[in-house]
Amino acid sequence: MFVQWKKANTGQPVPLAMFATAMNALLWLWTSAGVALEVLFQLIPFSLVGSIRLIRVCPEPYLPGLYIPSFIFG
């Protein structure tokens, strides 16, 4: 609506209240993106698998092992 109004009223300043509302929407948009990323890639996986331990996977006890997250083998 901001852009539509700007196009229809070229050169005029947008009403202050609308400017503030639009800027608030913009702030909300990019800050909620951070929350969404945290939830999608950290909290939901964390919540689904429980606490994550690293398990040492190595066929030979004297060799350096490979550490993998516990949820891979359950």
Binding site: M1, F2, V3, M18, A22, A25, L26, W28, L29, S32
Partner: peptide, 10 residues
């Protein structure tokens, strides 16, 4: 949702 929905302000 409001973050993207309120973008109808644009």
């Amino acid at each position: 949702v409001p973050g993207s929905g309120a973008s109808s302000c644009w």
